[in-house]
Amino acid sequence: MEKETLWQQQARQDPKQAKNYIDRFAQLRESGADLDGEARFVDALLPRDARVLDAGCGTGRVGGALAARGHRVTGVDLDEELLAAAQRDFPGSRWLPGNLASLDLRDASGTRETFDVVVSPGNVLAFVAPGTAGAVLSSLAAHLAPRGRLVVGFSLLKDYAFGTFEADVAAAGLRIASSFSTWDMRPLRPDSDFVVALMESTQTVN
């Protein structure tokens, strides 16, 4: 039986969690807030019509913005209410239920699907089941196309320390190619409270 994620634990305690999340970002969008920083970062890594996996897609905010920029997007999330919002707002993409720690997407022939970029923004790694972040990174790494890249962003104020993250990255067969403190690529410093990490497989590094 798969471990319950922190998001699921919080949802049991607060049944309105997903609705409040949806409403909060809708209000931010209506207020004119810039919500596309993650999508701009990822889009800069890709040619047109690239394959993108939005891991922990929530309402499809990032994946939807990438689809609008000409990419083929698949989103995965555990929360059915958030997935329904993604399907409603961005019907041109594929939104699937799934646990990232055991993710294994297969095509009709049974071959594992791979992507040019896998992106997991929005503190996803901080909300997975305790002790499973390494498994999440490994399953996402397994869905990278040759020379594909994995991008994650999460708060360093949560319970997932950067040193633990570095060890999990190495165990997943990945290396950190670049790291920043913001999605607009400000330098990562010892006192930074957020990290954006761009990774690639150690199997494809020249």
Rank of each mutant, 00 (worst) to 15 (best):
E81I: 09
A135G: 03
P146T: 12
L140N: 01
R94S: 15
P121N: 04
H143W: 01
S139Y: 01
G98C: 11
P130M: 08
R147H: 12
P146K: 14
P91L: 09
A101F: 06
L96C: 08
T74N: 08
N99Q: 11
A129S: 13
P130N: 14
A145T: 06
P130L: 13
L100T: 05
L82T: 01
A85K: 13
A142F: 01
A133I: 00
R147E: 11
R106S: 11
T74W: 13
F127D: 11
G134P: 01
G70N: 09
A129T: 13
L144N: 06
A85L: 02
A145E: 13
A108F: 00
L83G: 08
R72A: 08
A141K: 04
L100M: 01
L78T: 15
V119F: 11
G148W: 04
V118I: 07
L125P: 00
G122H: 05
H143K: 08
S109V: 12
L100F: 05
D104C: 13
D89M: 07
A86S: 06
R106A: 14
P91Q: 03
V73G: 12
A85Q: 15
R94V: 15
L103T: 13
T132R: 15
R147N: 12
V76P: 12
A141P: 00
A84K: 11
A84T: 10
V73H: 07
D107K: 06
V73Y: 03
G148P: 04
A141L: 02
S138R: 14
L125N: 02
R106V: 15
G110R: 13
L140T: 08
G92S: 11
V136F: 00
P91K: 04
V128E: 11
V136C: 09
A101V: 00
D79K: 05
R94W: 04
E80K: 11
A141W: 00
